[in-house]
């Protein structure tokens, strides 16, 4: 992607994009509702009014279907799952446990309980990293936040499963690992750190 050509686009996170779309749509809906209420005092013969509304509905139906279809076709190409992931340059094993993270370079055959690792790790920036994420006890969620507090990648850590998450740290710096699945009282202190070098 030629992100340098579009600095604005590059700064547009998925969160801001969602917020923007939502805000615009919500304002339209509020505007239409207000219009509907304010104009309802005028009286129109009910069959004529109905006919007009249902005429509009046909167009709305087609319009919405087209928008949703286009959005589906585009968005279903950007999935985070294994089949869509870039070839990894490096693998990292991550085990979540109440209430800390165990991370170490390389893949591991050990069970999540046996596995040893640290909740702080250094990884190369600009490389495709594959995180193999498991849990030693309950459900957790391995989420990476950048230093501006933006959630940039996540996958669940489930007992009995290994989820593979791909992420390329775009720049050097410190990233936080945060647990995004409620996992018991001290859930909020379950953090780790990744230094992208």
């Amino acid at each position: 992607m030629k992100t340098d050509l579009f600095p604005l686009l590059a700064a547009l996170t998925a969160q801001k994009f969602s917020g923007g779309i939502f805000l615009m749509a919500a304002l339209v809906v509020v505007g239409l509702t207000t219009y509907l209420i304010l104009t309802s005092r005028t009286r129109e013969e009910k069959y004529a009014a109905k006919k007009r509304v249902y005429g509009l509905r046909a167009r709305y139906f087609i319009g919405l279907s087209v928008i949703l279809l286009v959005a589906l076709v585009i968005s279903l190409r950007f999935l985070p799952y294994e089949r869509y992931q870039a070839k990894p340059d490096q693998t990292v094993t991550v085990v979540a446990m109440q209430w800390t993270w165990k991370m170490a370079a390389g893949s591991s055959d050990q069970t999540p309980l046996e596995f040893t690792g640290s909740n702080e790790i250094s990884l190369p920036a600009g490389k495709n990293i594959r995180f193999v994420v498991a849990s030693a006890d309950v459900n957790h969620n391995f989420a990476i936040y950048n230093s501006q507090g933006v959630l940039v990648a996540q996958t669940q850590a489930m007992p009995g499963y290994r989820n593979e998450l791909a992420y390329r740290f775009p720049e050097k710096g410190d990233y936080m690992v945060i647990c995004l699945e409620y996992c018991g009282g001290p859930h909020t202190i379950m953090t780790g750190k990744i230094h992208a070098l």
Binding site: T13, A14, Q15, F17, S18, I21, F22, A25, A26, V29, V30, T33, L68, A71, S75, L76, F78, L79, P80, N141, A143, L151, V152, A153, Q154, L180, E181
Partner: peptide, 28 residues
Amino acid sequence: GMGWVIGGVAAVVDSTIAINKALHNTLW
């Protein structure tokens, strides 16, 4: 009805897998 539609827009946005990875389990 208005609230239902507004909540619905937010739901459809979040039900997009490519966006859900940025919003899942946030206050959204």
